[in-house]
Design a protein around this nucleic acid. Structure first.
Lengths: 208, 208
DNA sequence: CGTGATTTTGAGCCCGATCAAGTTGAGTGG
DNA sequence: CCACTCAACTTGATCGGGCTCAAAATCACG
């Protein structure tokens, strides 16, 4: 969005609809007719799939600034996963049809879509690699390091932007496994109190 | 590629370089300076990452028609993973710089990039969901069903296009786990002889 | 201070990784 | 055509990480 030129931006805003949802509201379900793609303005959205036993697995957690369902822009008329508000949220909604047309005319829009898809593809590939290579404590350490306000210094403090159960899903873990991972990181100088996480030795965390 | 107009196609072919590699050759490594993105013409390419112990995990297996490293088109000057020829292969190579310039001018090229990124993103998200929801036999069943020549009929036969160890990596399994998954599918009517796989009852496989 | 949701802790279990043989298979040279 | 060789695959045994279920503890909030 930020990269759009003035006219392109104006035309995108023209077709945007802002909507609010309450915690646990379903925005759309897998297989439903897809009309819109979304951009999160505030709060967090959970994208997940179900297996045939009804077990849920998170595919992605979207926060402010993130878009989702944009992979339907080129082809596809069905949503590929379920999406649910993790809390009270505000999202902007764009009709796929209109954005497709706009991308044809405004090369800025096409470029922004490419940027956005690339970023997601990167994150998603990282996610696969992490799932396949790292243990639970390593994933948590990795998450903490990626969300450290500063790269430098020995200690840091992070406030989780959402519930731990949501973080667990994001990392592909059961909530219990996340909890145990945190307690196993205590020996590496990680202290958890509610949503506040203290890291006493950043370089020690990198060794995990 | 197939969707490009005549002039766009010509300009892409103009900047393409065709190269061959032998089995196990490394095309590029994670962290190296990225100059090209690739399109597989024949054979299979393995994209993988290493953890700090040197264990490898496949992120994607690319076959004829697949492109890789295209997520570097918008930003990024380093490869994000290692790529290795799984056998004797032929690939086309495109300079990122030139394709970026071309995408600006030819909207067909931009559209093709969007298409291609969307497809990958979809596949990659599917991969995460499968990793998190399905057991080994379910993943194998899923793969077989997705690669059945026909949707209809009760029985089918598939010839794997690559080694089983490559399939194992693609599905996020150790080769031993793939082998055990196949043998556990025997009771569902799956017979394996070399690379040839016979499925006696497609609908039974869907139940797995 | 009470209530319900969230998180932590414990115990048991299962899936898949790993290591170590064995077996099959493909390609090579006699 | 057959033995040889090396790689690929299978099978067995063991191990460990993370899931599940259950219960206790903590937290958020009225």
């Amino acid at each position: 969005m930020a990269s759009l030129g003035a006219t392109a931006l104006a035309r995108m805003l023209e077709i945007a609809t802002v909507t609010n949802y309450e915690a646990r509201d379903i925005l759309f379900r897998e297989g439903e007719n897809a009309e819109y793609f979304y951009c999160v303005l505030s709060g967090y959205v959970r994208l997940f799939r179900l297996n045939k036993d009804g077990r849920e697995a998170d595919i992605r957690i979207c926060g402010p600034g993130d878009t989702f369902a944009e992979c339907l822009l080129s082809v596809g008329d069905r949503y590929l996963y379920n999406s649910q508000a993790a809390e009270t949220i505000t999202v902007a909604r764009f009709e796929l049809q209109k954005v497709r047309a706009l991308a044809e005319q405004e090369s800025d829009v096409a470029k922004a879509i490419i940027q956005c898809l690339s970023d997601h593809l990167r994150n998603t590939m990282d996610c696969i690699a992490n799932d396949r290579l790292q243990t639970a404590p390593q994933r948590v350490a990795h998450y903490l390091l990626n969300n450290c306000p500063v790269e430098e210094g020995t200690s840091a403090s992070i406030r989780l932007p959402f519930q731990k159960s949501l973080l667990a899903g994001k990392l592909g873990l059961a909530p219990e496994a996340l909890s145990r991972a945190f307690s196993s990181l205590r020996r590496a100088g990680v202290t958890v109190r509610g949503r506040i996480i203290q890291i006493s030795d950043i370089s020690a965390l990198k060794q995990i």
